[in-house]
Structure formats: structure tokens, C-alpha cells
Design a protein around this nucleic acid. Sequence first.
DNA 1: TCTCAATGAGACATGTGTGTGTCAATCGAT
DNA 2: ATCGATTGACACACACATGTCTCATTGAGA
Lengths: 194, 194
Amino acid sequence: MVRRPALRDRISAGILDTAASVLAERGDSASMADIAETAGVSRATLYRYFPSRDALLAGMAQAAMDDLDERIAGAELDGVPVREGIARLTRAFLAAGGRYAALIHIKLTEERKRGMLPESADERVAGPVRRLIERGVADGSLRADVPADVQFELFTALVERALRLVSGRRLGVEQASAAVVAVFLDGAGGAQRD
Amino acid sequence: MVRRPALRDRISAGILDTAASVLAERGDSASMADIAETAGVSRATLYRYFPSRDALLAGMAQAAMDDLDERIAGAELDGVPVREGIARLTRAFLAAGGRYAALIHIKLTEERKRGMLPESADERVAGPVRRLIERGVADGSLRADVPADVQFELFTALVERALRLVSGRRLGVEQASAAVVAVFLDGAGGAQRD
DNA sequence: TCTCAATGAGACATGTGTGTGTCAATCGAT
DNA sequence: ATCGATTGACACACACATGTCTCATTGAGA
């Protein structure tokens, strides 16, 4: 009989959170021992919660996607104008912080492992972003001379870089969001605009 | 007496080139054995040319920076308008392909190792970009409400993502350059412009 | 043809990360 | 206070990457 399943869940969540930040910070070179130490548990205990490194990564990905899902749902993209939707998404991702960074990291290393692009379940997160951009292209609020999938890539590139700036304490979430939204929607060129 | 120093240089350059693409593709997990095999030499020979992994990475960084230096010089940024300079830089980096990607990778892993930011010699490459952006902010051709260093980060983020799209055969250098320049200078928002 | 530098193949030591297992200490619930 | 689940501290086997070394083979130049 398990003594306190709630406690176990809390510890598990704590480990996942720690793992996310360690992974985002030190990259793949972070070992199970590193993660265990940072999380404040022994290596043995870490393995009791997650029987393998893959299991830990899978757990992180799952938790990150659940979290992101919730944030995206909370942004209520469906009704709003595309420009407003872009702003909400940017803030949502930057506020997610380490969890989003962890997801990116896992996705990248998986892409490298498999031949290419498992086009995996992270579409749960990417899908809404893609759809918003496609809607923008369709209704004229986003430019039509750059393909929507390319705009998606460039937008996420901006968000991910901004996330690193936030993690590195170089920018606050507010400033980073504002910069990404401003540059993505209106560009860095200032001369020909208002 | 060395038989053919020229041959040795050619092989060395070939190894560096192979290493750059392997590293860019498989990340840090690429081993010396992987690189040797891809380069078509034995592991022993690889170690004869580069006595350690660090030496190989240093050689790659050196070669990449030399290459990029040349491309940047060839772009003749000093006279031209900032918008034109941005376009030339974008094309230069994307045309450099794997060499630029290798440099990014090395810079990232070094950042992780050392505490943070050795603010290293890659300023040889980043410097001209920073200066161009600062000039743009100063003369009004780039917006002033986003700090120049943030604009630098966002611009390089776009270029690096575009580079991945080019490497993955999803975009040609031309299309990728055009997309980056268009989005960075004028934004993805299409409604309020021309 | 002969010579010698360069190469490939492989053994080897070392370090490190993963995953398994054991055992004593601990800590909460009864 | 007692019981049992949980934990931490090891020890261990295993896989793999780095770096060094030896030795036979190859191939271009004299």
C-alpha cells in the first residue's frame, strides 16, 4: 500500500521541474546524477520515480505539453484578431519558461536521433500556432508573400530566442514579449512606419 | 620531411568540413568515430590531424570564423543603407551554410560549459552585425523602441532558423533570405503596410 | 624498384554515464 | 513503540567515448 500518493506526485512534479531547468541550462550533457543532485534527491530515488532517462524525458515532455496546452486554451485564440492572438501566444510561451524550453530541447534531440521529423505529438502545441498564422495569412492580417509554414518557423524562432533572453535574466517577460510581437508583426524597420 | 604539405591541408580542410556538417546534424552526440567515418578516414588518422576533440572544435571555429569574416568583408557593409546591409548579411550567413551552423553550435556548448558568456572572439563575426544594427537604430532605419542588442538577438535567431530550413532542404537560400529580410525589416503583419 | 611517410586496423587504459541491486537508516501511520 | 514504506549511500556490471599505442600495409617519390 502506498503511504501518500499525493506526496509522491508532488515529488515527481518537482523532479520534472528541476529536470526541465537543468536540461535547458546544461543541455544533453546533464546527467541523471546532475538532475538528482539539483532536485535534492539521491540518484537511486530519481531512478525509482523514473526508471530510465527516456522515461524522465517522456515525463517532462508530457508535463510540458499539458502545461502549454492549458496556457494556449487560456489564450482563447479563436475569437480574437490574429495580431492579438500572436501577442497572447507570445506571452503564454514566454511565461511558461523552462517547461517550454524543455519541450524544445526534447523535440530537437529526437529529431536528430530519428532520421528526421517524427512530426510527433507536439502538434498539440504547434497546431494552434500554425492555425493562427494560417488564419492571418488568409484574412490579410499576415503577409501572403511568405508561406505560412515559414512564418511559423520564424515566429517560433523569435519566441525561443526571447525565452533564452528571459532565462538568462537579460530581459523580463514583458519586454521580451513586446519585442517579439513588435518585430514579428511590424518588423524592426522603423523608417517607413508611423 | 613531409611528403605533400598541400595534400595534408586539403585533407585537414575536408575533415573540418565534414565535422561541421556532422556536428550541425547530430549535435554533441556525434563522436570522433562518427566524424572519422563520415570523413572517410580512420579514427587514428583523425587523431593525427587533430590530437583531441577540443582541437578539432577549435579548428572548426577558426575555419568558420575565417570564412565568415571573408563573407562579411565581401558584403561591404560600411557604405550601404542599413536595410541593404541586413539583406547582404542574411545572404552571406545563409550561403555559408554548415560553417556558420558549426560556429553557433560551438558557441552554445561553450556557453554551457563555462559559467556564462566568455564574450569570446566570435565578436569578430558578431561585431559587424551589432554595429550595423546600432547604426540603423541611430539613423532611424531601425526602430528605436527595441534595444539594439535585442534586435541583434532576434535577427540572428531568424537567420539561424532559416539556416536550419535551408539545411533541411525545406527552403532554398534565396527564399530563406527573402523571408528573413522581409520579416525582420517589415514584419509579418501585412495589413497596415503598402 | 626501393624507401619511407602516411594510413588503417585494432588493442588498450581511462573516465564517465546508465541502470540494477543491496542494505541500513529514517519517518509517518497505527 | 512498532511496522512498513521510503530513502540515501554504495557497489556493481555494462556500454561507450576519448586518447595512446603498436604494427602491418600502402603508395608516392627518388
